[in-house]
Design a protein around this nucleic acid. Structure first.
Lengths: 197, 197, 197, 197
DNA sequence: TATGAATGAGCATTCATTCAT
DNA sequence: GATGAATGAATGCTCATTCAT
């Protein structure tokens, strides 16, 4: 019965990653101990090491999820037939990212910030972050291209530069939300709409 | 060699912080060991602990510097008589932050990213980050207010929201620069100018 | 080797305490290093810290044992029906305390002296020593009371004062034995009998 | 002017020992740091090391003083012409030892307890303690001998054994005073007189 | 297969002592 | 002589990982 076993394995992995994500949101990657993850998951050390071969592997899996979630939801927009204004794309992202509770009980942005820090120093997380960020920025570039084609944006706008800037708005929102606590998707999108040409 | 001057003490503190900053840029706060800092500074353990009473105190000092530098240089702009366009303010920041080598041989943005991650979980670093980020955002709000007064920006623009967005552009630049490596102050500012109303 | 029995856990704790006691008898509380205890116990650092959460906890446990043993054996005397002369009570204590080898291969008095020194400066050990010393002195007071009732001791003798003095004889024996080395339970008890009314 | 210099040297040594004694009374020998002694003495590290060549030498000097003081004052009694009852000798000791403040602001018994603990493990302090304790016990034996000669004590009393017991009363008083806090010279001496033949 | 006790290298920090000034 | 900054070995403790049961 390999299918049942595989499903079981996947469920266990999720259980462990969700537990680890809660720890990481609380303590960051490096202050999170395997003992804490093990306790949070309600499993034994041996069990956890049966599903992940090291703490590092868990960290990478968590970073992957936290960084990938955002890009994932922007794809829907890109797939649509009708054009979407860049500010709407930004809004989709912001709403996604502030959804009350996601992914095992933690807001992902908190983990994303840890992942950024790790990406700066660990080549493997760097590669992973790079891939996810490029995917997200490419999605934004598609949006820009379409708007340019239908005249919503001027023809002389460099789509790559515009995508840099649009993408660049997102980490700043996350950071202000987590550290200053006074930004909402509404206030931020209003500001964006007011400033964008 | 007793009775050292205050200048000497300050120089030694700088020497230690610069060494620690290099380590942190390489390894992050938590993977940086005191042994590494000590070796990098070319001092002994006891000497370092004569200037800072714990690793934590060193981390706070570094985070403080890395987060504070940017706000510091934006003040010049705010002090000026003539109005400055928001995009110019952003440009000043970007150039500052990409200055080839600063502060003991490390680019500060690399440390700022570590500081963000730490601010999310350590209340003291949080307070520190909050203070510095508010100062920077306030400076941007001043710029917006002046532009609104002289008509460069429309009167119905909410200055607080605009400042959120302008400030929000900055972390995204830093992150794209460190992780994707394909943004320059020039490309980013061009994008900003093209999109801003 | 998981799921160890409680008996096994208790045995391990004893093994560690016995090893630590040997170290303390040799070096005192503060010159005893955890490395020495660990080596003496034949375990690893992690194993020892699995049973005791700090060196301090080990010290307290050892002090507790060393100070408590004596009082424990005097209780037998107090429980007896027939009256016991104070000198006999003192003799029981002295024999107990000079029993060739006890408690993991160390004579407890050697540790008791360390515990006295610690009790003078550490509030927790102080509380512990206080409790054990009071129990022992109370036992001696019971002995005095019974002797007074049956006429072995005069009716005008203050039992509290007598207990202070009888208790007071004990540390002096221990100290002379450890430092001068020329007292035996026999010589000391003979002296006590000769001097007591 | 060597005489002035010598007096100055002696005064400085006293200043250092008094400071160290205060530290030791507070923290014990091993928790007392040279930094604490140096600060308490109001001198510099170099200065202190000009008068004592190591912490160990200071410890021994302090132990020596604390253990010697008692024997010193019992000598007066022994020198007298007229016989002294043993209980009086004990009383002299107790009063001495509870004199409100002695020797640089510390009660010596507190230090004596530390010295006992050290004597059990350090051969040099052991030798020192042995010498002082023997001197004190010998003084008590002289008292016993004289009392035996003039009939105050019975002729068949073994003076050595009696001295062991009389000496043995003293540490017990010190310990009860420091740890239980409910003995006074008066109560203790009354008990001794009531019990002694 | 699952358990969790055991491992031991690694870490931050202390402190007696020295010696250049 | 006096100073106190500097030294660096040593300490108590942690934690990712293993493996006997």
């Amino acid at each position: 019965m390999p299918k049942v076993t595989d499903a079981h394995r996947a469920a266990r992995r999720d259980q462990i990653l969700a537990a680890a994500a809660r720890c990481v949101a609380r303590e960051g990657f490096h202050k999170t101990t395997m003992a804490a993850v093990i306790a949070e998951a309600g499993l034994s050390a041996g069990a956890v090491y049966g599903y992940f071969k090291s703490k590092n592997e868990i960290i990478k899996a968590i970073a992957d999820r936290a960084l990938g979630q955002a890009a994932h939801h922007l794809h829907d927009l890109v797939e649509r037939e009708e054009p979407v204004h860049p500010a709407d794309a930004v809004e989709v992202f912001l709403r996604q990212v502030t959804a009350p509770v996601v992914e095992g009980g933690v807001e992902l942005p908190r983990i994303a910030v840890q992942a950024w820090a790790e990406a700066v120093r660990d080549p493997e997380v760097h590669a992973l972050a790079r891939e996810k960020m490029l995917a997200l920025r490419d999605a934004l570039e598609s949006v820009v291209l379409r708007c340019r084609r239908d005249g919503t944006l001027p023809a002389d706008l460099d789509p790559a530069q515009a995508a840099q800037v649009l993408f660049g708005l997102l980490p700043g929102f996350v950071l202000q939300r987590l550290i200053l606590g006074d930004v909402t998707p509404e206030s931020y999108v209003q500001g964006v709409r007011a400033l964008l040409r």
